[in-house]
């Protein structure tokens, strides 16, 4: 997401992230990645539950797409830190707009299944065109 922050902002769309884990994890993540956009701490998974984001199960670790995702992440220089207390929680991506509108919703189905940034950008672009 940090690689596309400027692109979102050029579309008059802000960027934020919500993470699991405590403040210690979050601060280390922010420092390591150098992100400057807001990073929220949702240790109790309140936001995750509110939008119905699911959890994986251990069998997902055996899926081929998970192995591919891990390989892709490693190749991209990403490494996984210590697991938090909810290692099976899945993530996703939303683009939300004034009037409490959902412009884009993506709920991950398994590990490594991340919201496609291009699709998130496309929804922001469509909104910018409609408003602009």
């Amino acid at each position: 997401m940090r690689d596309h922050e400027d692109e979102f902002r050029s579309l008059d769309c802000d960027v934020a992230a919500i993470g699991l884990g405590d403040r210690h994890y979050a601060e280390a993540f922010r420092e390591e990645t150098g992100i400057t956009f807001p990073l929220f701490i949702d240790d109790d998974r309140l936001a995750y539950k509110a939008v119905g984001m699911g959890s994986a199960n251990l069998l997902h670790l055996l899926r081929k797409d998970n192995a591919k995702a891990r390989h892709r992440a490693k190749k991209g220089g990403h490494s996984q830190h210590r697991l938090g207390k909810n290692p099976l929680q899945l993530g996703g991506g939303l683009v939300l707009a004034p009037g409490d509108r959902d412009l884009y919703v993506y709920l991950s189905e398994t590990f490594g299944d991340n919201a496609p940034i291009e699709d998130m950008l496309a929804s922001a672009r469509a909104e910018a065109s409609a408003v602009g």
Binding site: M1, F8, L11, D12, C13, D14, V15, A16, A17, I18, G19, L20, G21, R23, Y25, A26, E27, A28, F29, R30, E32, P38, L39, F40, I41, A47, Y48, V51, M53, H78, S79, Q80, H81, R82, L83, G84, P87, Q89, L90, G91, G92, G93, L94, V95, L96, A97, P98, D100, L103, Y104, S108, F111, A115, M120, A124, E127
Partner: peptide
């Protein structure tokens, strides 16, 4: 927010859209 402020999430999209990523873990 990691820098210490408590923020009502609705403030994030009250004036313009926001892209929010839900991380599976930090790292």
């Amino acid at each position: 927010e990691v820098q210490g402020d408590y923020i009502r999430l609705g403030e994030l999209w009250s004036e313009r859209p926001v892209a929010i990523v839900f991380l599976r873990h930090y790292g």
